[in-house]
Design a protein around this nucleic acid. Structure first.
Length: 218
DNA sequence: GCGACAG
DNA sequence: ATCTTGTCGC
C-alpha cells in the first residue's frame, strides 16, 4: 500500500514536537465501526540501533493471518518519552509499503491520543496512511485512571488534563489491563470494541501478538 | 525544582 | 526495548 513519507526528518526534540503539534490537527475521532482486514504492527530491537519492523494482516472475521511483511532498519531518533514514534516510524512505513493488501485498521503497539501532546504513534501512523488506527499500551503513560473491574470487558476512563483520552481495558479476567486510545478515524467505543474482539484469548490483541512474533523471528 | 516517563 | 531463572497458576 501507499504511505505518505515523513517530511524533513526532525533534527531534534523541538522539531519533532513541532511536527506532532502540526499533524495533530489532522486526526479524526470518528470513522467506520466494522473492519475486514486488521493489521498488527510491532518492532523488535536487536542491539545498537538495529531493529526489525513487522506488519501482519489478519482476516477480522477469522483472525487468520493473510499477509505478513518485515523491514529491517535502524532507530531513527533517540528514545524520548513522547517522541517514541520517531524511532520506529521509518521502518514501520517501509513495512507497510511492502503490503500487497490494504488493511482497514491499524492496531499499534503504544499510544494514540493518550499522549503528552495528543499525538502518539497510533495517531501518526493513521495520519500518514489515512487509515483508521488505534493504540494499545501495556503500561500506563499519561493521565490517571481507576483500576477496572476484574471481569473481561470492564474498563475505566483515562483522564488527562480534564479530558478522556483513552481507557484501561481488562481483556482477561484477573490479568493486568491494557490501555486503549484512539489513533485516527475511530471512536473510543469502536476502538475498545475492536480490542476486546481481537484479544479474545490473550491479554494483547492477536494482530500485535503475531507482529511481535514475526519481528522477533523474521 | 525533582522525579516519572509508550517501547 | 533489552539483560535474565525459577516459579506459581490455570
Amino acid at each position: 500500500m501507499r504511505v505518505k513519507r515523513l517530511h524533513p526528518w526532525p533534527a531534534g526534540i523541538a522539531e519533532a514536537e513541532a511536527i506532532q503539534d502540526r499533524l495533530r490537527s489532522r486526526v479524526e475521532l470518528t470513522g467506520p465501526d466494522t473492519f475486514t482486514l486488521v493489521a498488527g504492527l510491532d518492532v523488535h530491537y536487536r542491539g545498537g540501533d538495529a531493529l526489525t519492523a513487522a506488519v501482519v494482516v489478519l482476516d477480522a472475521a477469522t483472525l487468520e493471518p493473510v499477509e505478513q511483511v518485515v523491514a529491517h532498519g535502524e532507530a531513527a531518533f533517540p528514545y524520548v518519552p513522547g517522541l517514541f514514534a520517531f524511532r520506529e516510524l521509518p521502518a514501520l512505513v517501509t513495512a507497510l509499503e511492502r503490503l500487497t493488501t490494504t488493511p482497514d485498521l491499524l492496531v499499534c503497539d503504544g499510544y494514540g491520543l493518550a499522549h503528552p501532546r495528543g499525538f502518539g504513534l497510533a495517531c501518526h501512523l493513521g495520519v500518514l496512511t489515512g487509515l483508521p488506527s488505534l493504540g494499545v499500551g501495556k503500561t500506563p503513560f499519561v493521565g490517571t485512571h481507576e483500576p477496572p473491574g476484574e471481569e473481561r470487558g470492564s474498563w475505566t476512563p483515562i483522564v488527562h488534563e480534564g479530558a478522556v483520552v483513552g481507557r484501561a481495558l481488562r481483556t482477561r479476567r484477573g490479568v493486568k489491563p491494557v490501555y486503549v486510545s484512539q489513533g485516527h478515524r475511530i471512536s473510543l467505543d469502536v476502538a475498545t470494541e475492536q480490542v476486546l474482539h481481537l484479544a479474545a484469548r490473550y491479554r494483547l490483541p492477536e494482530p500485535i501478538r503475531h507482529a511481535d512474533h514475526l519481528a522477533r523471528h523474521p
